[in-house]
Amino acid sequence: MTDKATGPDGQSPPDPQQTRVFPETEEPAPWWQTAPTTQQPSYPPPEAPPGYQVPGPGGQWPGYPQQVPQQPYYPAQQPFPGYPPPPRSNQAGLIVGIVLAVVALVGAGIAAVALGGSDSSSNQVAATTTVTQTTPAVVAQPGFKTIEVPALGIAYEVPSGWSAGAGPSSHGGLTAYGQAGEGAKYCPGSAYRTLSFVVRSELSDLTAAAQRVAEIAAETGYSNSNSGDRNYTQPNSRTTRAGLAARFVLGTGPWQPSAPGCTTDGYAVYSLAFEGPKGETLVLAIESDRNTTGQMTLDEVGIILDSVRAK
C-alpha cells in the first residue's frame, strides 16, 4: 500500500466522499487534483466573475458528491468571459494553397509541352521534316549576259555584245570551256580583240594555278611577243559576288600582230583561280588587246571576274 500523494504545498488531498461546505472564499482545487478529461483544446482555467465559483476538478461543484463527468458543458461553444475564442483552423488558406499548387503544376505541364513536347507524333514530324533552301536566281548585271559552263558546274557574265563559243577547245595545251569573245578578226593578224575561257588546273594551290595559267595565256595568245618583256603582278586575293575566295594575277607586255594594219601595241592577261563546286581548281582567263579601238574597259574586267559563281 502506497502513501497518499501530497500536493506541492505538502497538504494531503481531501477525501472525495467528505461533505464539503460551500464557503464563498473557498479556493479552487489544486492543479494536481484535476481529473483527466477527453482531449479538448488546452486553455488556462477561467477566472470566475465576482460572487461565483468555478467548478472543481472534473467539473465537480464544491459541496456535491463526486459524479462521473460527462462532457463539460459550454453553452453554444461560447468562450469563457475574458478570453478570446479558440483559433479556428485556416481552411480557406489551405484551400487557396491547394488551388495555387494545382495551377502551378498545370502551368509547368503546359510549359513542358510547349518547350519539349510530349507528343511522339510531333517529335517524329520534327525529326523527319527537312528544310529545302532555294538559291535565288542570279540576274546578270545590266548590259551583261550569262555564260554557263555545265561541264564545270559554274557560270560567269560577259558583255551582251560578246559571242559564246560552240564548245571546248584546246588552248595552249589546256582544254578551254565556256569560251566567249568579241572583235573576231577586227584587224589583220588578231583572231579576237578579247577572249575569255575557263580551264581546269592540276595545281591545288590557287596562287600557283593563277600564275601558271596567266603565263600560258600570254605565251599562246601572244606568241610573237618578247618573253623578256612579260610582266606579272604579285598574286592577290579577290572575292566574287557569290562569295568565292579567289587568287588573281595580271600579266602584261608589248605586242603587235605580224600582219600590218593593226593599231594595238600591247596585251593584258587576267587570270582568276578559284575552287569549283566539284572541289577542283578552276581558272577563268581573259586575253585582251590593249591600246586599240573598242578595247575592253577595266570596269568590264572587274564585272566579268566578280561574276563567277556555282551554277
Rank of each mutant, 00 (worst) to 15 (best):
G58K: 03
Y156N: 06
Q256R: 08
A114G: 13
T130H: 14
P45Y: 08
E300F: 07
T132R: 08
P14H: 13
Y192R: 03
G7K: 05
A191C: 05
S258F: 05
G143H: 08
T134S: 14
Q18V: 11
A310G: 15
F144D: 04
L284K: 01
G172Y: 00
Y186T: 08
A140C: 09
G56F: 01
E287F: 05
Q91F: 12
P150H: 07
R241T: 09
P45R: 14
I95M: 06
G58W: 02
S225I: 09
S89D: 11
R247G: 02
N231K: 10
T37A: 13
Q33D: 05
Q256E: 13
T134G: 13
P49N: 11
D205L: 08
A210Y: 01
A246L: 02
N123Q: 11
V301F: 07
P142D: 10
L115G: 11
S225T: 14
K4M: 11
S271K: 03
T38C: 12
A35W: 15
V283L: 04
A76P: 00
R247D: 10
G93R: 12
E300S: 12
Y73I: 11
Y177D: 00
A5H: 11
Q71T: 03
R212L: 08
P65R: 05
S42D: 10
V283G: 00
E287M: 03
Q77E: 12
V102Q: 06
P69E: 08
V54R: 12
A92N: 08
E275N: 14
P36W: 14
P14C: 13
A191F: 09
E287L: 14
L284H: 06
Q40I: 06
I303G: 00
P28C: 03
G189S: 14
A210P: 00
P36A: 10
K145G: 04
G178Q: 04
T128H: 09
L305D: 00
Y52C: 12
K278H: 15
C187L: 07
G251Y: 00
D205R: 02
P65M: 02
Y83N: 06
V106F: 14
A209T: 01
A166K: 15
T130I: 06
G97Y: 04
E24I: 15
Q53W: 10
N236W: 04
W255H: 06
N236P: 01
Y267V: 02
Q295Y: 01
